[in-house]
Design a protein around this nucleic acid. Structure first.
Lengths: 333, 333
DNA sequence: TATCCTTACGTCAACGTTGACGTAGAACAG
DNA sequence: CTGTTCTACGTCAACGTTGACGTAAGGATA
């Protein structure tokens, strides 16, 4: 910058004025400065600028998601990006893979980077460690999972209701023995979905065989194995609810290889691009990712605009998308 | 930091030493400083640190992808993240949506942010504007598409060969009239795929009806319409090659509604999670996203480690994954 | 003509941190 | 006891930028 000033025959401050489009620089000088900047390959140093300015916005928002490679996180990231772009904010994305330590580490990094905001799909259960950050004025928005131990904005889906919808739908199809596969129960969304499943069974006066509820199913392969095992029971389930998209895929595979995909009903959580092309087409509980991302962005921007109202908790309603797999009725015994 | 120093009764420099784990601070002092830091909610300011240090690594790598919400970009992002995490680098992700202006703008932003490296799936055709950045020492790795007008590392897939594989496979299934749907022809990958398709037809001595090559198909819906239109021709194609995953989905939908999904062959470009669950299961050309991302990360890290060898161009081989839709033979006439 | 305002600059210091260098005291060798 | 080396600090300036403030020239106003 000094070099540019020297070459243009002005002071550094004037270069700063030109670069930032501030008034107080004649057209002629402006021209000279810009040419000098070009000649010298000068690049404005945003870090130094941020350091000096009072309000010091870094223009970075951290997005800590479960896995940016998975379609739910990826769609969310995209929606968030769109919503923040207009405000000139960039998104620093990171995958947590349900590892609390990584969450802590990346948050610390983002704080040191002076991120303007944080979007968090937490891997940890307790979030007290964020209290001091929030007190220091860092806007934090939880997404998909609620905050515990700190009072932040959040955007979640009514998971209990989603699982309830799925279960009720199957019950109304005549099913009595409905199995559920779920993610690690410590994960809040999984916990809620299990609760919704249980509540729906209970409301319908069904006993709810504990053997049919399998929490802690970790991956696609494991889901396939679990479904296969359940189908081999003396009194097998006639319908399945799967608590996450990869579990749904695993379940479809198991039903397929057992030749039962048209006999056993299935409702999955999370929609995905080709769900209607599978045979039978998959009935799912859809969460509107676009909408979630947009809401998160909106909340964050509101906070950045200075809103200090009490935390808002947006809860979106999931919807049941009927495509066929969930409408298979109970086989007559 | 000054406050911490004051509270701990030491100089700012000593606080700096403690924070950075440098030697030259007694255990006792170290303890005092850490306690003071905690009491005051002190956070190390990475921006200032970067500014002062000589080598000044910001720890940020920019990833400019086509669309972080799309499974190809998302998978790449994830693989890249994993590969860079070990080096303590964070990824700032952005979607370009094939808009060259956005590419320019975001690159400028990243340069101003003093990003340590750039990963670019370009939306533009000419990249001369990157020459000065590269000269200034910014490592740039192109991915999926080659650089034009600047000599950078790149990781691409042999798209010509991929399309060739698909087309040859269909020809060997007895097909003579093979249609191809492609993305905007200005996009290099699309161009290459078209070339591979043409070359395979030519090598087999087939005429190649221009009416069967439809470039510039933009979305899923348009793909459905185009396939429907082609199927209505007096002499319709008996097989399709689709140049991108969303086009494949559109094509499946069209074949499905025409009731021809078991009569007309289809090979798609890009694999996706449920491709084997569709009926018939989809034969695709697979690009190993994990591998691509890992290679990109490796190249970037090598450059950051100081390698100044001439640019490397890694070209990965796509593979044909046979699942059924591509093995449908030509209907006897 | 004296006064005031405006415009277009320049000067200086500070943002939070760390590299270079200085120093005081302890430990040790001869 | 002197000289040397080492450890544990402190001092100072600088990284690139900009806010606060100063100033000189020109124009408008009374």
């Amino acid at each position: 910058m000094k070099d540019v000033a020297l070459l243009a025959g002005v002071s550094a401050k004037t270069v700063s004025r030109v670069v930032n489009g501030e008034p107080g620089a004649s057209t002629e000088v402006r021209e000279r400065v810009l040419q000098a900047a070009q000649r010298l390959d000068y690049r404005h140093n945003l870090g130094a600028s941020t350091l000096r300015r009072k309000d010091s916005r870094s223009g970075i928002v951290g997005a800590l998601l479960q896995d940016v490679g998975n379609s739910f996180s990826a769609g969310l990231l995209r929606a968030l990006e769109d919503s923040l772009r207009s405000a000139g904010l960039s998104v620093l994305a990171a995958s947590l893979d349900e590892e609390p330590d990584r969450e802590r580490g990346i948050v610390a990094d983002l704080v040191a980077r002076r991120a303007d905001g944080l979007v968090l799909m937490p891997a940890s259960n307790r979030h007290e460690y964020l209290v001091s950050e929030q007190r220091a004025g860092l806007p934090i928005v939880f997404v998909d999972r609620r905050p515990h131990g700190v009072d932040c904005d959040s955007v979640t889906v009514d998971n209990r209701r989603g699982a309830g919808l799925a279960t009720e739908h199957l019950i109304s199809g005549g099913h009595r023995r409905i199995a559920m596969l779920s993610d690690l129960e410590e994960i809040e969304t999984a916990h809620e979905r299990i609760a919704g499943y249980r509540a729906a069974l209970h409301a319908a006066g069904l006993p709810g065989d504990p053997a049919l509820l399998v929490p802690s199913v970790r991956g696609e392969l494991e889901a396939t194995q679990v479904v296969t095992r359940l189908l081999a029971l003396p009194d097998p389930p006639t319908a399945f609810v799967t608590g996450r998209n990869i579990l749904t895929i695993g379940a479809v595979r198991a039903l397929r290889s057992a030749g039962l995909s048209h006999q056993v009903a299935l409702v999955g959580f999370d929609d995905f691009p080709m769900a209607d092309l599978v045979e039978p087409a998959l009935t799912v509980i859809r969460q509107d990712v676009q909408r979630i991302g947009a809401e998160v962005g909106r909340l964050l921007l509101t906070r950045l605009a200075g809103d200090t109202a009490p935390p808002k908790h947006v809860v979106l309603e999931p919807t049941l998308v009927q495509r066929g797999s969930g409408e298979i009725r109970r086989r007559p015994v």
